[in-house]
Design a binder for these strands. Structure first.
Lengths: 110, 110
DNA sequence: TTGTAATATCGAAATATTGCGATAAATAAA
DNA sequence: TTTATTTATCGCAATATTTCGATATTACAA
């Protein structure tokens, strides 16, 4: 809820959470899969692919973009959206670092 | 063809979104990092580590457990929570499969 | 038995997210 | 110019999340 809990968590934790939040809706996962599949990037295509209205897709794209997972560039009167591969790789590294990094001594507790 | 408008989101998309949602709060990321760091699993420890009340931690643990990211087993009057490494690995694979799997012909559009 | 410690659950308030119709803005095409 | 196309934004209702005090539950200890 509430107050600026940003103060209580470190940057890495907030970054992971921000990426994850962008991924936390099936529509946004579907958008990413679609961008990866077609390897090109027109919003209109996505609107035709997903069972959601155009403003809703636009909103999801905005959130993905804000989180740095995709990027868009204007191409005439369409916008070329595509996956930000650098940030995607970064997210994968962050996730991999949480668990299970190469462990020096793994005592298994569970 | 990809996702058609009449389909709802598929299981893989929902699974990714569910995992990601569990990761989408800094407190839950912090909990996971802590579980990984100490490699043992007592809720009380976590309450002392994070700037959140005990019911709040308990709620976050519940969500992580529900998503399959951690598992807990009763040990006397404490509960041993730890990362579900199998599911964590599964999540990493799912994320890796979205982007960027080895592509035979990668025309870069962005 | 009674008391203490560890977790979970309930309830409620504050806040955030989701979805979409209506509409705006920008460019393209005619 | 006018009209169509593409995408973004506004506004609002419905729903979900987050937080924590109060309380319940469970197990151990004395």
């Amino acid at each position: 809820m509430g107050i600026s809990k940003s103060d209580h968590f470190n940057e890495r934790q907030i970054e992971v959470a921000t990426f994850a939040k962008a991924l936390s809706h099936p529509a946004r996962v579907a958008i990413l899969e679609y961008l990866q599949k077609v390897d090109s990037c027109i919003c209109g295509d996505i609107v035709n692919e997903l069972p959601l209205a155009q403003p809703t897709i636009s909103q999801h794209l905005k959130e993905l973009k804000l989180a740095g997972i995709i990027k868009g560039s204007i191409e005439g009167n369409t916008i070329c959206y595509c996956i930000n591969k650098d940030n995607w790789a970064k997210f994968q590294v962050l996730v991999g670092n949480i668990c299970c990094p190469p462990k020096s001594d793994s005592k298994t507790c569970c």
